[in-house]
Amino acid sequence: MKPHYLDKANPDVYAAMRGAADLVAEAASAAGLSKLLVELVSVRVSQLNGCAYCLDVHTTKLLAAGETARRLGVLPAWRETGLFDETERAALELAEAITTLPAPEERLAIEYRVREVLSDAEFAALSWLAISMNAFNRVSITSRHPVRPKP
């Protein structure tokens, strides 16, 4: 069975998603979030969802933003290291909660924890970033977007 690329089947819908993603990027910038933090969250969400295509795209962007191979390598176990600062830890915890949707009591406890670190603008921008990344992961997974060898 050949892949069914949703972005090609309904280009106007995909263009609207891209437009929303551009607004999310603007909100992240306005909130003062670094490109590195934005890509760190994008990679972590894509790891949780198992989206190879998005992992390829955002790992490349993360490394270009200055991320180290060491931190990238331990990202799935970020809680077990001291390599991530307080803001990064809050952003990763929030993104994981939005992606995995734990029980309501746990989600509320996470929100209280991360709001002690993140400003309202950071919280909102990171929430939209995780929501947007989850949507793009699902488009790429459903479409079976391939990871092609790079020249």
Rank of each mutant, 00 (worst) to 15 (best):
L63I: 02
L72N: 05
L94R: 05
A91F: 06
L23V: 14
A15I: 00
A52Y: 01
A21M: 14
L72S: 03
A25H: 15
L101V: 15
W128S: 12
I141N: 04
L72T: 02
R115N: 02
I110D: 06
E96Q: 13
A21I: 12
V74E: 00
Y5V: 03
P102R: 11
A52M: 10
V57C: 02
A124G: 05
D120Q: 13
A65L: 01
E67T: 01
L37K: 09
E111Y: 03
E116G: 14
P149G: 05
A9G: 08
A109S: 06
V13F: 07
K8M: 12
V139S: 07
S119F: 11
H4L: 15
R107M: 15
S29Q: 14
L36Y: 09
N134P: 01
A16M: 10
A77S: 12
N49Q: 07
A25N: 14
D85R: 08
R115L: 05
C54Q: 04
T99K: 02
L126W: 03
P3L: 12
S132W: 01
A95N: 06
V139H: 11
T68R: 11
D7S: 15
W78Y: 07
L83R: 00
E26A: 11
D56I: 05
V38L: 10
R107L: 15
D22R: 15
N49F: 00
D12K: 11
L75P: 07
N49L: 06
A130I: 13
T99W: 07
E116K: 01
P102C: 00
A121E: 14
I131S: 10
G82D: 14
V74T: 12
E67G: 10
E116H: 02
N134S: 13
P76E: 11
D22V: 15
E26L: 12
E106I: 15
Y112A: 05
E96K: 00
T100C: 13
A90F: 11
L48N: 11
A77L: 02
L48T: 08
W78G: 09
A103I: 00
L108K: 15
V57Y: 07
A109K: 10
L62I: 08
P102Q: 03
S127T: 14
A121R: 15
V38K: 14
A109T: 10
L94H: 10
R148T: 12
R71C: 05
V117Q: 04
S34R: 01
A91T: 09
